[in-house]
């Protein structure tokens, strides 16, 4: 009996097909090496980990070039390593991926002041702790580093409602996506609208910003209508489900009473 007791405890531990913990993906060599360093050369890793780039799997090599898988040649110019880009070259580095945004920036008052004391991408978005593009980047503290906030405030206020709608719709789409709904079309639609909206972030023409924001709001309304239909479908399913559950419980009660009658 003691053997039985011991084995039962062990037996409850297990069943046949084992599953192991997944290991997180291995860090690239840049992170492995700089992550162990302190001071100026180590700081970027901690900052990068909090960035939108890290969230989307964009590593150091995405901006600085080099070979992220070969420690010996990680910083070899032959492998495309560019080191720290010069200030005037920053828009081109970011523009490797964010082509449209770079063009918006270059045609804006900010871009036209490039090299003459004007801000670059990293002035507002940060360099290693790159922030997700949002209206929060237009704030008195940051804008006032270079100029007054009045004009920027008008532009930000004009875009606030649209930004709020985009964020809310994005959340709803994510929720439905996590429920297996086919949201690819509206997700792409929102992606395009968000990009279109974000091009306004680099514009300083108040009237243009206002009109475009209204047009985008109209497009967002169409996506909201699709989401509303999805919501209604789910509501109807729950009503049907409530009847189905009630029916099953009623059947259980009837079968139980029937059994009692046989006793």
């Amino acid at each position: 009996m003691k053997t039985l007791g011991a084995f039962l405890i062990a037996a409850m531990l297990a069943s046949l097909p084992g599953a192991l913990a997944a290991q997180p993906p291995a860090d690239i060599v840049c992170v492995q090496c700089h992550g162990r360093q302190t001071g100026r050369t180590g700081e970027p890793v901690a900052l990068w980990r909090q960035s939108i780039h890290a969230e989307n799997g964009i590593g150091c090599n995405g901006c600085h070039g080099g070979d992220p898988n070969d420690a010996d040649n990680a910083m070899s110019p032959a492998r495309g390593f560019i080191g720290v880009p010069a200030e005037s070259a920053i828009p081109a580095v970011c523009g490797k991926c964010h082509v449209g945004v770079m063009n918006d920036y270059l045609s804006s008052a900010h871009g036209k002041a490039l090299g003459g004391g004007g801000p670059t991408c990293v002035t507002c978005h940060g360099n290693h702790k790159v922030l997700r593009a949002s209206l929060d980047l237009i704030n008195e503290k940051d804008c006032s580093r270079c100029h007054g906030f009045e004009r920027a405030r008008i532009i930000r206020d004009a875009m606030q409602k649209t930004e709020g709608s985009i964020v809310a719709i994005d959340r709803r789409i994510s929720r439905y996506k996590n429920e297996g709904a086919d949201v690819e079309r509206i997700e792409k639609g929102l992606f395009a609208l968000r990009n279109r909206f974000h091009t306004l972030f680099h514009d300083q023409d108040v009237e243009k910003v206002w009109k475009e924001a209204v047009r985008i709001d109209g497009e967002l309304g169409k996506i909201e209508a699709v989401l509303g239909e999805m919501n209604e479908t789910r509501r109807q399913r729950k009503i049907v489900g409530a009847f189905a559950v009630g029916g099953a419980l009623l059947a259980a009660l009837l079968f139980h009473l029937l059994r009692k009658s046989y006793d």
């Binding site: 189905a244 559950v245 419980l249 259980a252 029937l258 059994r259």
Partner: peptide, 20 residues
């Protein structure tokens, strides 16, 4: 009838999870 009762109770639980 006991089997039918048990299956119905299971079904209620199953449907509650599926629908809700």
């Amino acid at each position: 009838m006991q089997d039918a009762t048990s299956i119905s109770i299971y079904l209620a639980l199953f449907l509650a999870v599926v629908f809700f």
